[in-house]
Design a protein around this nucleic acid. Sequence first.
DNA 1: GCAAAAGTGTTACGCTTACACCCATGG
DNA 2: CCATGGGTGTAAGCGTAACACTTTTGC
Lengths: 239, 239
Amino acid sequence: MLQNPNPAPAYYQQAETLLVAVDCIIFGFDGEKLKLLVFKRKLNPFAGAYSLIGSFVHPSESTTDAARRVLFDFTGLQDIFLEELHVYSEVDRDPGARCISIAKYALIRVTDYHKALSDHYDTEWVALDSLPELVLDHNRMVADALQRLKQKAQFYPIGFELLPKKFTIPMLQRLYEEIFERSFDARNFRKKLLSLTLVKPLPEKDRTTSKKGSFLYRFDYKKYERLSKKGFQFSLFKI
Amino acid sequence: MLQNPNPAPAYYQQAETLLVAVDCIIFGFDGEKLKLLVFKRKLNPFAGAYSLIGSFVHPSESTTDAARRVLFDFTGLQDIFLEELHVYSEVDRDPGARCISIAKYALIRVTDYHKALSDHYDTEWVALDSLPELVLDHNRMVADALQRLKQKAQFYPIGFELLPKKFTIPMLQRLYEEIFERSFDARNFRKKLLSLTLVKPLPEKDRTTSKKGSFLYRFDYKKYERLSKKGFQFSLFKI
DNA sequence: GCAAAAGTGTTACGCTTACACCCATGG
DNA sequence: CCATGGGTGTAAGCGTAACACTTTTGC
């Protein structure tokens, strides 16, 4: 990288600065429905209203740092899937101040979720098909995130981020059916998944959803990374 | 949208604001090679160095407004393809100031490009395979934009944004070969393209690249929009 | 023993790919 | 007349999609 050969001129200082926030669209899957984590604001403005989880970005941190900070504060989770969605910067988007928001979406394993924090922050899981009204442009952010999730899940194995690390094939299928709002043939789904050889069978069964029980699998991230670098494109069904 | 029921508290004012910039990764195609539009800075810091085209975001405009403003200033073009790439916000990314940059990539028709402005701003088209060193993290931005262009062009007809509105099939094929760094079989490429019925044949030929001449086509944006809404997925070749 | 979910193979079709020659024209 | 790029069809193989019955076990 080129090093700055001269000091920054007045130009830099004169330019107008802005408030910068991050807002997190946090998805979860309870085995049945796709859910969103929201919280009820305690402070004004909008006290009592539902909102995405967010924070202003401090000068001493990157936007990713800020997002990870609030995610940890509200869920107790670290090392979770987090990706930038979009910058929302309409001049009048926040009546309280000129503030741009960098929206990021996160995928979390509901099973790992730290429930103790839930009460403290008044967070709630809400089903995506019955969202409450959220503050500002947050409903728009959720709609955009959902569209992105659909796109991304077609060609990247991000669905596995929403399941427990050990999961069954029917569980995965239900998740995919939830994300894509369509059904899949169980035989073809299983066949295609196993043909990718990216899930490793475990000698254990999950018996919570049936008497017979269903074998557990684990996603092989290392193998996926390896194949990915060689040009392999993940996909579970034809578009 | 919920209206603010109460005035914003001191919290809003206390939060620290940041400099926010937009930087544009501007791609063009001259019929032969994929090019990037850069300019040689006249002012410090980094006077004389190559840089992406950008600006600080004013409080009175959205980031899209800001990007369109600089694109118009530097190229004389309006209504061009512009999409957000990523927010670059590492704390030490700009030694001159704490500044985050929202990178956007643009696709322009080199034929429409307003050359008169080129001299005024010292802009230059450079081939993507022989980029100069750019200021700050701009080389990283370009690499990321190129990757995004590849991804996006697989499933969205954005290649047409880089060609004149009337184009020939061999021209389009050369562009795709440039983007995807691979070759395509001319018969299969043409067959697949025409089978989508998204390009309308014109009764004119382009004779600049061969004696025989090659028929011109026009992309049918309206038809694409219509099909798109019904769930049609654009793709010119299997991944 | 029965209800409820898990697990298993085969076939038809469509899409993708590979491949070689004639056409039109300007010089 | 020849060099150059434009334009055309067919066949093989692969992946996708459709489809019905058996297995296991808790109650």
